[in-house]
Amino acid sequence: MKVDYINPILIASSKIIKALLQEDITLGRLSLLDSHNLKDSVAIILWMTGDFDGRFIFAIKRNVALQIASAMMGERITELNDMAKSAVAEMATIILGRTGIIFSERGIDVKISYPTLVEGDSVYISTLNPRKRSIINIPLIMSRGNVIDIKIESGDLIRE
């Protein structure tokens, strides 16, 4: 696994979550996955292309998404409406944008897509090409135990 591609997302996530949510994060146990199966969650999907090609899925339980939206909007949010979803998608976009800046500082040229948000009781997001791509799950654990799972799917993560 290439830590050159993993460390920037950890650095960016820590910095942005601290700034936006006033939360410190700890890193949970990284794992390799075969698929993207989410329960009672929202998923923000972003692509990165260039010297690093990959799909990033920010998987967040609905109740955690409400807390994130509340912190970002400065008021208690009780419904995951369009504005709340937009706030959560913006956080993911900012994290990946900061990751792109770190990549650039390290000589890795990338471009980032617009976010796509999906939500559901049971969400399955197909794997693009399981033989040529790895999925690594990075759980970011916030102070109250809330988790943001960042799933990175890329052929650039396969062990050589």
Results as ranks from 00 to 15, higher is better:
K132I: 12
I95C: 06
A92V: 06
K151D: 07
S13I: 06
G54S: 11
I152W: 03
I17P: 06
F58H: 09
T78N: 15
R98P: 00
D34W: 02
I17S: 02
F52S: 03
V64N: 12
M73V: 06
I17F: 06
N81H: 05
G155C: 11
G28I: 00
A65G: 10
M142L: 13
Y114M: 05
I94D: 06
D156R: 04
M83C: 01
S70F: 09
E153W: 07
N7W: 05
G155K: 13
A87K: 09
G54W: 04
G120A: 03
R29E: 09
M142Q: 09
I16K: 07
I77W: 04
G50V: 02
N81R: 05
G54L: 05
I135D: 14
T78H: 11
A69C: 08
F58Q: 02
E160F: 04
S14R: 09
T78V: 13
I17C: 01
A65P: 11
D34K: 15
S31V: 00
E153K: 08
A12C: 11
E119Y: 01
A87M: 11
S41A: 13
G97Q: 10
F103A: 02
I68K: 11
M83F: 15
G100S: 14
R131V: 14
V118Q: 10
D53P: 00
Y124S: 08
A92L: 09
R144L: 15
I101C: 00
K2Y: 02
D51I: 01
L21Q: 07
L117G: 06
I112A: 05
N81T: 01
V64M: 10
I108E: 11
V42W: 04
A59V: 07
A71F: 01
G28A: 01
D121L: 12
G50Q: 03
T99L: 14
A12R: 08
D109G: 00
S154Q: 09
R144N: 15
M48C: 12
S122C: 09
N37K: 01
A19K: 15
I125D: 10
N37P: 00
A84Q: 10
M83W: 06
I25Q: 06
S113K: 10
E90A: 03
L80V: 12
I95H: 06
N146C: 00
A84T: 05
I44N: 11
R106G: 04
A43G: 04
N37S: 01
R62P: 00
A65V: 12
R133I: 09
I148M: 03
L80M: 14
M91N: 05
L66D: 08
A19Y: 11
G107Q: 10
V64S: 13
K61T: 00
F52R: 02
R144K: 15
G107K: 07
S122Y: 15
